[in-house]
């Protein structure tokens, strides 16, 4: 395995790690930021496979506008993130075993 394919492998591994972390993490704001990191990583993956237009679109839309809209929706739905996390913990969707 030469150096180039090794770097591709590391990027793809980071892609899978961010995709899993965006689902697993409980704090919603952290999930949004991790999703932004996932979007930027997949833009870098497109760039590796020489799809330059798709990479630029993904970096502009996925990592930029979508993150801003998610954060704005997050700010409008609940006041603070700690309130939201405590509220969900008190509601209890069968996740008390965690």
């Amino acid at each position: 395995m030469d150096l180039l394919s090794l770097s591709h492998f590391i990027v793809l591994l980071f892609l899978i790690a961010t995709a899993l972390a965006a689902i697993i993490v409980e704090d919603l704001l952290s999930a949004i930021i991790i999703y932004s990191a996932y979007s930027f990583t997949i833009a870098f993956t497109y760039l590796i496979f020489r799809a330059n237009d798709v990479a630029m679109t993904e970096a502009a839309v996925g990592a930029g506008v979508t993150t801003i809209l998610f954060i704005a929706a997050f700010c409008k739905t609940k006041g603070k993130e700690s309130d939201l996390v405590n509220h969900e913990a008190h509601e209890g969707h069968g996740e008390k075993t965690k």
């Binding site: 237009d53 630029m56 679109t57 502009a60 839309v61 930029g64 506008v65 801003i68």
Partner: peptide, 8 residues
């Protein structure tokens, strides 16, 4: 792409 950047 450029339009999205300006809108952002």
């Amino acid at each position: 792409q450029g339009g999205v950047v300006i809108g952002a």
